[in-house]
């Protein structure tokens, strides 16, 4: 991908000038900060300077991540519809038992908070198919992009670019195709089939939710697997070729075992992402038809923010449940990457 354009002396001087212009405010800002920091250093000594450097980051992190993480529990054990904790009565595990109140766990209809369970069921279905096909397609694409093909840079870019698109853009691109009068239905009618109202049919909606999210994120996992494939020493393949080993055998005996640690990381990363599915599908289907593509994060969002009556306690309890799931997955991920480093 290296673009080797000849560098003209004119461009260089222009670039330098631009750089100088861009660097000027930076230099002024950091220069102004020099005096107070020098004073701090004299006051505290070099030994304490790392804490000063860490302070802004940790302060932001504490205020916007750690403090919320702690008060999430406080929200989940208090009731009422007030936002401020001091005005919320303590209710203990009521929110959790409300969420868990089910006639039968296999039937969301029988639950008191059926939307929560519907969200969980939809998420499980989504995660299962999305992760399975995501990993399959990423693997096939990575294997193909790893071959000696003409224009490999172009093909790699083609599979990667949707990763950078915003979820809203991704959803709108596909919504435009899948509408009742969209180009896909035009294609269907031109070969003599009936139009399909994709967003009215629950199964089709779920299919497209899975399809679109794979389309958008596949490039990311392909890239990780491609890096893994390229780390496999070429002499292994050369040796196999000397022995005249069949290609299928090379794949099962060399490629797959050596790629396994990367594959494991990809599976877990994809799981962590898939469990939190929200943006694309929310814009694409709005969770519909009915609640057919409503996932757990959308449940948290609507319960806490979008509904007429905002139920912060219930939303917080649901996010604690989600948090526990993600925590477990993260532990698995850490174990997987440790195995990768060891292997």
């Amino acid at each position: 991908m290296a673009h080797e354009t000849p560098v003209h002396s004119d461009d260089l001087s222009l670039g330098d000038r631009l750089n100088a212009v861009a660097a000027w405010p930076v230099r002024v800002l950091f220069g102004l900060l020099d005096t107070p920091f020098r004073a701090l250093q004299r006051l505290l000594g070099i030994g304490r300077m790392p804490y000063i450097f860490l302070l802004p980051n940790l302060a932001f992190f504490g205020i916007f991540v750690i403090v919320p993480l702690i008060i999430n529990f406080a929200f989940s054990v208090t009731g009422g519809d007030e936002l401020f904790l001091s005005e919320r009565p303590y209710v203990g595990g009521e929110q959790y038992s409300y969420l868990a109140d089910c006639g039968s766990y296999l039937d969301p209809q029988s639950c008191r908070e059926d939307r929560f369970w519907r969200g969980i069921y939809n998420t499980v279905v989504f995660v299962f198919f999305q992760v399975a096909f995501m990993v399959l397609f990423s693997l096939v694409t990575a294997l193909i992009l790893n071959r000696e093909i003409r224009g490999r840079g172009f093909f790699r870019a083609a599979f990667f670019f949707p990763v950078l698109l915003s979820p809203v853009v991704v959803a709108l691109i596909w919504k435009w195709i899948l509408l009742r009068d969209g180009v896909l239905n035009a294609g269907l009618t031109s070969i003599g089939l009936d139009r399909i109202l994709f967003f009215v049919d629950p199964t089709w909606s779920m299919f497209w939710a899975i399809f679109v999210s794979i389309w958008a994120h596949m490039g990311f996992y392909t890239l990780i697997l491609l890096a893994g494939l390229q780390a496999i020493p070429p002499d292994l393949y050369e040796a196999a070729e000397m022995d005249g080993t069949r290609r299928e055998r090379v794949f099962w005996r060399i490629t797959l075992p050596l790629l396994w640690p990367n594959l494991l990381v990809v599976v877990v990363l994809a799981l962590i992402k898939a469990v939190q599915i929200f943006d694309e599908v929310f814009v694409l289907t709005g969770g519909g038809p009915g609640t057919a593509t409503q996932f757990i994060v959308q449940y948290i969002y609507t319960t806490g923010f979008a509904n007429q009556v905002q139920n912060f306690g219930l939303a917080a309890a649901a996010s604690v449940v989600l948090g526990v799931v993600l925590f477990v997955l993260t532990l698995v991920q850490l174990a997987a990457s440790r195995r990768k480093e060891d292997g």
Binding site: F64, V65, V67, P68, L69, I70, I71, N72, A74, F75, L83, Q276, F278, V297, I300, Y301, G304, F305, F312, A315, A316, S319, V320, L322, G323, L326
Partner: peptide
């Protein structure tokens, strides 16, 4: 996603 309410 897991700290939506308290971050708000």
């Amino acid at each position: 996603t897991i700290i939506l309410v308290p971050a708000y």
